[in-house]
Write a protein that binds this DNA or RNA. Structure first.
Lengths: 186, 186
DNA sequence: GTCTATAATACGATAGAC
DNA sequence: GTCTATCGTATTATAGAC
């Protein structure tokens, strides 16, 4: 796959995790990525919607992988999930308060405005929920419980990201990590 | 206080809980509110930032009040918070998947772009966290625990709103409500 | 206080040369 | 594949009449 194409997608992720969908312009993506300006519509003939949908989807796949690889042994979901969230907390602070993924902002902005992007966001969230669920299954949770907790954990992390970005501090995410660990260790 | 002014703020809340900050234009606010077009900059001389900051702040105050009044007796925080979230779940579905408040979307979009709106979002979230905390204190939680859980609950609700909007279903919020109740009943 | 008209700018998208 | 130039349409904000 083209290098430039990948780089445009990565830049889109980086910008949208700070500014969201409407707050990020195509001119900004071109400029920031350093990609040849004429090539944007060559690689993404369907424009901004296509770029965003692909960026969201790719970001979801990468985040899910990070959850899966959290603890290789897989015997302790509580610790794996705890560490995963602490990593996001650090990232928020070291990146100038980026969200770690474009998903949170883009999902909110486009939920009722673009069917295509909304579909990509659903798929991305389902990947995250499933990754958490698998971790919990490995640790001995029942199927129903693992499924519901997968949703619960995803919601809590997303909300923690919003609070940490708003307060310009990783602490809300750290509080979330701490209490999720207690909940999952019981 | 002016009736028109209040109506402009209310309309801004309604639009931004669906479309966010950048997705909502001033023209749209004027048109939707039916307010006299010439009066927008009369009541809000500092423009969109001022309108948004005030809308966010007002919305935070109203939501905090709804949490406080959830259960008048105040003896059962778990049930009060559970019911509060179920109400949001219903609202998301009956409103065509609005967020219940402009806070979630606006906070994400403006966290690093507008200091003024960011400050309003912080104050609004602090109001929510405090409202949850007070409910927990009334139910006998220790001060430290009530404080941390106030943050945890706020994060979980905000994340639940994102998931429910994305999936076009109140069910993620209902899952959140269920497991929060279990957590708080122990 | 409210109106219309418009300034000034940014946006997404496209055309056509090379 | 990549370029520049530009179209058409949004946006926020302001000016000036009434």
């Amino acid at each position: 796959m083209s290098n430039i194409r990948e780089h445009i997608l990565q830049t889109t992720c980086n910008l949208m995790e700070k500014q969201g969908y409407h707050g990020t312009g195509l001119n900004e993506i071109v400029k920031e990525s350093g990609a040849p300006k004429g090539s944007l519509y060559h690689y993404f003939p369907e424009g901004k919607e296509q770029i965003t949908a692909e960026a969201v989807w790719q970001s979801g796949r990468m985040t899910a992988k990070r959850i899966q690889n959290g603890v290789s042994g897989g015997s302790n979901a509580a610790k794996a999930i705890h560490d995963f969230i602490l990593n996001i907390a650090d990232h928020v602070e070291t990146s100038g308060f980026a969200a770690g993924s474009p998903l949170t902002a883009v999902a909110m902005e486009t939920a009722t405005k673009s069917e295509r992007i909304n579909l990509a966001c659903r798929e991305a969230y389902t990947l995250l929920e499933t990754a958490f669920k698998e971790k919990l299954l490995e640790s001995g949770f029942t199927k129903t419980k693992a499924e519901e907790l997968g949703t619960f954990i995803t919601a809590t992390v997303e909300g923690g990201i919003i609070l940490s970005r708003t307060y310009h501090s990783g602490n809300p995410l750290r509080t979330v990590a701490k209490h999720l660990k207690v909940l999952l260790s019981q």
